[in-house]
Amino acid sequence: MEPSNLTRRLKDLEDNIKKDFALLKDYEDALRDEDDPRRKGKYNRAIEQLRESANRYQQEYDQLHQQITGESTVQMHSVAMQLEQMNKKLDQLYVGQKAIYGNINHLRQGLLAHYEAGEKNIISAITNQLNESQVTTISALLDAIEANQVSDAEMQNILSSIQEGLSILQQRAVTLPGSQGDIVEVINAPQMDFKHRLKVAVPLIPFILDYEGELELGTGINLKEALKQFMARLRLIGG
């Protein structure tokens, strides 16, 4: 291959690495501030695509390294350093995300421990869509329910709000995670223990909160504010 073509290939490689490295840093910043699990998944898939690109760049670099000598070695060294930085950043993101997912998976397993074996599949489909903060909040509320720290009136208000919110979401054809029919059946089953019905309903609170401003619940209860006040009270009890 002519030296000019080799130099052009090297320049194109360098430009592509720079663009992808800048994109990688943007994804890193986005992941740091993102709470939505679905959007996090989207960013992580994009990062995996950049890892595949980095592998291709390494192959291209190795081919060029065998053919380019002389004055171009300075530029080769620059490209090698950029590749090293990109791979290092990819590895850091991988380790960081693995630790985060390991922690949230541990929290989700703790939350599922509140449920019977037959209900864990239903609940896990919901909890897999919750972020770490939401899982922590729901787990604390479940602990409080089981420890009888929630009054009957509070439990009734929370369950009524969730039932009404679900009913409105169904009317608007809003799809919730997992088998919505199974969830609604348990929550509305009058023969089932009231506290148990509430425990099944509680993980749905974050999804209902996403729509609460639009739902205009007839109960007159601001579910977000009620939850906020209740969690504040729990912290006082815990302290």
Rank of each mutant, 00 (worst) to 15 (best):
S124A: 11
R172G: 05
F21Y: 09
L24S: 12
Q191H: 14
L83Y: 04
G178K: 02
M76S: 01
K89F: 03
K228E: 11
V200M: 04
A30D: 07
K11A: 04
E212M: 06
I237V: 12
T219P: 00
K89H: 06
T7R: 15
Q229P: 01
R51G: 09
R172P: 00
Y211R: 07
E28H: 05
A125M: 06
Q82G: 03
K199T: 07
G110Y: 00
L111R: 03
K11L: 12
Q163T: 09
F21L: 07
A189G: 03
V200S: 01
H77T: 11
Q170I: 05
D143F: 08
L6T: 01
F21M: 04
G213R: 11
G220V: 09
L90D: 00
F21R: 10
V184R: 13
E214I: 08
R235P: 01
V79E: 05
P37T: 04
P177R: 01
K88T: 10
E119Y: 08
T137S: 10
I168G: 03
N5L: 14
Q63R: 14
N55R: 08
H196E: 07
R32D: 08
A226W: 03
L13Y: 09
L10Y: 00
E164V: 03
L227M: 15
K19M: 13
A46D: 13
K224N: 14
I145H: 05
Q85E: 10
E34N: 04
G118E: 13
V74Q: 10
E119A: 09
D152N: 08
A140Y: 03
D15P: 02
K89M: 13
Y211V: 09
E52I: 14
R56N: 07
Q191K: 15
I162L: 07
V186M: 15
Q75V: 05
Y94L: 10
V200L: 04
A22G: 01
Q85A: 10
Q63W: 09
G110I: 03
G96A: 13
D26W: 05
N44W: 13
L130W: 01
V174P: 01
L166I: 06
L234H: 03
E28P: 02
Q63V: 06
L93R: 08
A113W: 06
K195T: 13
I104Q: 00
Q156H: 08
L111E: 00
L6I: 10
I122C: 00
S124V: 04
A22P: 00
Y57T: 00
F230G: 08
S161L: 06
A99D: 10
T175S: 12
A189S: 08
L24N: 05
S78L: 08
K42W: 13
S4R: 15
F21Q: 06
